[in-house]
Amino acid sequence: MQINSTKTSQQGYDNVNHNQTRDVMKTNSDKDNNEQLALYMSAVANYQDKRAFAKLFAYFSPKINAFGHQRLNQQGLALDLVQETLTRVWTKAHLYNPDKAAVTTWVFTIMRNQCFDMLRKVQHNREDSFGDDIWQLFDSDNAQEDDNDFMLSASLLKHVDALPPLQKQVVRGIYLQELTQQELAEKLHIPIGTVKSRLRLGLEKLKSYMEQAL
């Protein structure tokens, strides 16, 4: 199997090896071990470095396989757990934040969450994935900053609050409390036509606020 590596990642990767003559598998000290794993992680995160990924695979796969045997009781499923976990290490590497957790803790979290979903499949025949909802990975802070929809809703909500009170009341009722126009009319004791006209005015004003902001 030919492993490709970009020029930049090659350099970063070779530094790792020059500085650390001992291989990660033979290192006894936890601290060295964690530092070594963190360097591999950053090579995967920044350069999609396959050689660094192969190192992570060599370190974690037998351990995940053993964990899977213990929990899932089937050779095939244990290998699935190895694949599912390490696939996520690859696709989520850039979300890993070394300030929040050691690489081993982060990988354990991914493995445990994955194993939880696989056990549900085995025991309850459910194809759901709740593991990452139950135990948030350590990447949620970054996730929110990147989430444009989230930012957009936040600024939209701010503009809703800036609307004149009567329009604000109607816009909030329809879009945030998800009432029907009829329900809202009854609740506010106003004709449904008034709900419609306040809503139209409110939405037009919101649109102009948002256009100015862009």
Binding site: D30, K63, F67, A102, T104, T105, V107, R112, W135
Partner: peptide
């Protein structure tokens, strides 16, 4: 606990 478990598992 998660940290301790990860040390144990790996």
């Amino acid at each position: 606990l998660t940290k301790a478990l990860s040390v144990e598992a790996f």
